[in-house]
Write a protein that binds this DNA or RNA. Structure first.
Lengths: 208, 208
DNA sequence: ACCTGAACACCGTTCAAGT
DNA sequence: ACCTGAACACCGTTCAAGT
């Protein structure tokens, strides 16, 4: 049921997800889908839940130091999203409140409390982290056609670099001087750098 | 032309934006729109550019200290997006590379260089900031119907708090203990807290 | 350059009816 | 519970033709 939706989304990209396409793949009339799902929006929630459940949530609870746990999990969530690129944008279209989202939230707060920040700062910071992870990946995916497998990261960086080439140095000196950095904005390096920046900011706060 | 698109998006929410709706509002056949815009995607880029141009980009270049300039501009961009809620999600559907986006990027890097970070860290951090601002606002808008004027922030927080009420304390102790904080995740307070966290992280780095 | 008319291949959702 | 059949009110985009 939801499997069909995922298959469609993976083959045809985000715009291909439709009630009618799912029905077609299952060899059934479009309205028959409404027996299993209330609306197209509900179907989208199911896809998001599936991808979130696919990420390595267990990594958040392991024996590793809190910082490693958070970064490893964030990387695993990004990887899950890149495997199902359409899901990245879908995650931004409704609050994340399914069962897997609750597990993730609980695990991140737990790890941050271990880090020594207050419980309420941990809750605030957990949201900053998920906004960053999901926002980063959604923007990354927006530059592709959305059908897996995506081009290798290095290829995507190269084509970004080429796109930045004709930039007017007189008008945008700072931007022009940092073309190579901007080309890498979608890289795993930049992703982890972002997380480290956030976590460094937390480390500079008063302790619980 | 683009004005009509904005009016439609403001009246009917994000899903109402369509070539046919714009044509209808202009009293013209659907395909006549293709004289002015190449595709629906291009129309969406125009809407994004309009809203970005509506934000107070000049605030980035003022005489205020660098940190104030950045925070003030981020707040102004969020406000512009909340005035045209459909644009928040549209900003995540394609790279931001219009003329206004270039002005913003240049201004943010400039401010960060003044703050004393290296030019390349400034470029990296500028992307972290825009991911946070746009991602935050897109998720915030996703909880509304997308038609302005949005409900007051306090009302939206209250209804979030109510939605969190039935949460199972035994299963999710940390999350349950921070319901009040999570209800405020969409607040201006949390927004500015996020930016401060990022900028504090930058302050803890080696200097240029 | 800017429009009309007609068409193609799609959408989500609802209703009534069947088994 | 789960499906069919038919319908309603939509989509983006293309082509050929007009002025």
């Amino acid at each position: 049921v939801v499997d069909a939706a995922l298959a469609i989304v993976d083959e045809g990209g985000p715009s291909a997800l439709s009630i009618r396409a799912v029905a077609g793949r299952l060899g059934v009339n479009p309205n028959a889908i409404y027996t299993y799902v209330a609306s197209r929006a509900a179907l989208e929630r199911e896809v998001v839940e599936w991808v979130l459940a696919d990420s390595d949530i267990a990594a958040l609870g392991g024996p590793a130091p809190w910082r490693t746990r958070i970064v490893d999990y964030a990387v695993s969530l990004r990887e899950s999203l890149l495997r199902h690129p359409a899901a990245a944008l879908l995650m931004m279209t409704a609050p994340m409140n399914g069962p897997s989202a609750l597990r993730v939230g609980e695990g991140v707060i737990e790890a941050l409390v271990e880090a020594g920040v207050t419980q309420s700062d941990a809750a605030r910071a957990s949201y900053v982290l998920i906004v960053q992870v999901v926002g980063f990946t959604a923007l990354e995916v927006a530059e592709t056609d959305g059908t897996p497998p995506l081009a290798a990261e290095s290829e995507r960086i190269t084509s970004r670099r080429e796109a930045l080439d004709p930039l007017d140095e007189a008008q945008w000196p700072r931007t022009a001087a940092t073309k190579d950095v901007a080309a890498q904005w979608i890289s795993t390096d930049q992703f982890i750098w972002s997380l480290d920046l956030l976590l460094d900011g937390l480390a500079s706060r008063p302790i619980a």
